[in-house]
Write a protein that binds this DNA or RNA. Structure first.
Lengths: 172, 172
DNA sequence: CGCCACTAGTAGACAAGTCCCCTAGGAGAT
DNA sequence: ATCTCCTAGGGGACTTGTCTACTAGTGGCG
């Protein structure tokens, strides 16, 4: 459900192929939603079946044909309805915290490696987010909102790094 | 996979029924992992089939029979292996941020309601976490690690509230 | 010429997770 | 006496998501 609405949201910005969408999920919207390629194509087919999007095959000039999907009026209505709808129940699922929770069964080296691994991926992600943030400009309200979600990610990544420091210090 | 290992971790603390486990997922480990009842019973059956846990039916004195599950030696080995294994790829999925991302399609009242709703659930969760935190004591390393995961949740919830304030101010 | 990377899309198997339904006994409230 | 809640344990349908592999064309590199 959420995936289909995010796709509709992206199609509302511009007509796209499944491939274009995949790139968005790997960059612009990747900080709050990830999606598998196969899942995207399936959801896209479903949107077309439900009349929320239309396909147009565009012959590729020296490249594979593009199946351009564009949002329909019904699609825009569905997107608006979702935006105003009640929030989905939030699932908190963090395998890293699960390991920390049972971390007593781990020796000291193992625990340190666990923390170090998390710090690495966290700061790598933070660096990526901050680069995106620096490159972005916010001319209008829509762009400012999109940037706000990126700021949310940045804030949480910084919180995570601070927490990692605290945990390591407490165990030193 | 992660669910099965968390269950093993809980069984390593004490033998439990599926029902007991469900209560843990609704309280102690709920801040980093949620699980549906049906999923827990299925996973438990799988663990028994794989020889990682054993069942013993305990006749209930004036209550339904309890199917007590206890971890086996193989189960402890599997838990240890998972603790040291490479981290699962982390999925970031937040339907709320998705709504904010496309929030320009929302009128001002709708947007304010969205933010207000998030603030409510966030502070409610924070209050719950802080109560758990206040009630808890940390006599040993294992308990301190478990508390650290709770602190992680608290830190992120506070970050979220601060971000909500910033977003609202920027749009005022 | 062969190899690799990129664009574009598809198929199928599986794993994971949610939702709604059900049985049953006991306890306490109305 | 009936109703509802709590404990305890399921079943089955369905949706969502992941992984692997495959087709097919283009362009660049050595």
């Amino acid at each position: 459900m959420v995936l289909s609405r995010i796709i509709l949201g992206l199609l509302a910005i511009a007509p796209m192929t499944g491939y274009d969408l995949k790139r968005h999920f790997d960059s612009t919207v990747g900080h709050f939603w990830s999606a598998d390629k196969a899942q995207i194509y399936r959801t896209l087919a479903q949107l077309v079946a439900d009349g929320l999007a239309e396909v147009e095959t565009v012959a590729g000039a020296g490249a594979p044909d593009r199946q351009e999907h564009r949002i329909t009026a019904a699609g825009r209505a569905a997107l608006a309805a979702w935006l105003e709808s009640a929030p989905e129940r939030q699932v908190e699922r963090d395998p890293f915290l699960a390991r920390v929770f049972f971390g007593a069964d781990l020796d000291d080296d193992g625990f340190r490696a666990l923390i170090a691994g998390r710090r690495e991926t966290t700061s790598a992600r933070l660096a990526g987010f901050e680069r995106l943030r620096a490159e972005a400009d916010a001319p209008d309200r829509a762009a400012r909102l999109r940037l706000a979600t990126l700021d949310n990610g940045i804030a949480h990544l910084r919180t995570e790094l601070a927490w990692l420091d605290a945990v390591e210090e407490e165990l030193a």
